[in-house]
């Protein structure tokens, strides 16, 4: 509650700082325009064409519907990975043996390219929702797992001793000593997993599904419709930017206030 209030209080000044970001995005737009004028609309549609297509797709409900389908798949896989990864990672971090045993396994999982998982998932789940959900899960799980494991393994023994001599009860040990530390490792892992899940889900849909943002992108490509392709890409990026800067970044600033060193 306190967190929410202070986040809202700092929102205006935070939003104001967004002008700089908008400027650099507009420069990117200009470069886009330049390239499309050089190579023609078939190779790269002009920004305005893309936006018109975007508006059209939005108005005839194709885009919102696809976003909801894709969002649901990404979130299902992500939530599964967050839950299992956090839980198992913490458990593994508490025991030295489990940490030693799981580390190489997780390294293998991390090193495995998501596209390889996708191939397997298509064999197992076909064109169902299972394919993107599984691929998102399996690609983000090791990141979350490693974050939780590191967090649990690196709990500061000095602080632990201090807390013992102050005779902190178990509940306070958990909420005041262990969890804030673990969370400082977990939160960045969660954020990275979220970004990852959004990219993976589009890739999975592009190859495996009949609906969703990825599938629509595949259709636009097969029609050689450069404007629609760019419109879909813009939608994907906009959503990711929105989540990152309107949702995660303000939370991160509040949660990690104690880390920031004053310049």
């Amino acid at each position: 509650m306190h967190l929410l209030r202070s986040t809202l209080r700092e929102l205006p000044s935070y939003l104001w700082s967004g002008w700089g970001a908008i400027c650099s995005l507009l420069l990117l737009m200009a470069a886009w325009q330049l390239v499309s004028e050089l190579y023609g609309s078939l190779v790269l549609a002009q920004p305005l064409e893309a936006f018109a297509s975007f508006k059209h797709l939005w108005n005839n409900q194709t885009l919102p519907e696809a976003l909801i389908i894709t969002g649901r798949r990404a979130l299902s896989g992500l939530l599964l990975a967050l839950g299992l990864g956090t839980g198992l990672g913490l458990l593994a971090g508490v025991s030295v043996t489990a940490a030693m045993m799981s580390r190489p396994l997780v390294t293998v999982l991390l090193g495995m390219p998501p596209i390889a998982w996708l191939v397997l998932a298509m064999l197992w789940f076909g064109a169902s929702d299972g394919t993107p959900i599984f691929t998102v899960f399996v690609a983000t799980f090791p990141m979350v797992f490693i974050g939780a494991l590191q967090g649990a393994r690196t709990v500061d023994n000095q602080l632990n001793e201090m807390a013992q001599t102050l005779q902190l009860p178990k509940r306070m040990m958990l909420f005041d000593v262990y969890l804030p530390h673990v969370f400082s490792y977990l939160f960045p892992a969660w954020v990275a997993a979220l970004g990852m899940s959004w990219k993976i889900v589009v890739m999975a849909e592009l190859l495996a599904n009949q609906d969703g943002v990825g599938a629509s992108l595949a259709v636009a490509r097969s029609h050689l419709d450069s404007a629609a392709s760019m419109a879909w890409i813009v939608a994907i990026v906009l959503l990711l930017l929105g989540i990152e800067y309107l949702f995660l970044e303000p939370i991160k600033r509040q949660v990690e206030r104690w880390r920031v060193t004053e310049a």
Partner: peptide, 27 residues
């Protein structure tokens, strides 16, 4: 009541100084 001090201050980095000071009372 026995209390200990260590070679390092050993404050919880995620708590303000007041919260650190009063940690024992909270316990």
């Amino acid at each position: 009541k026995t209390a200990s001090m260590f070679q390092q201050p050993r404050l919880l980095p995620w708590k303000t100084c007041l919260d650190n000071m009063t940690l024992g009372l909270k316990a």
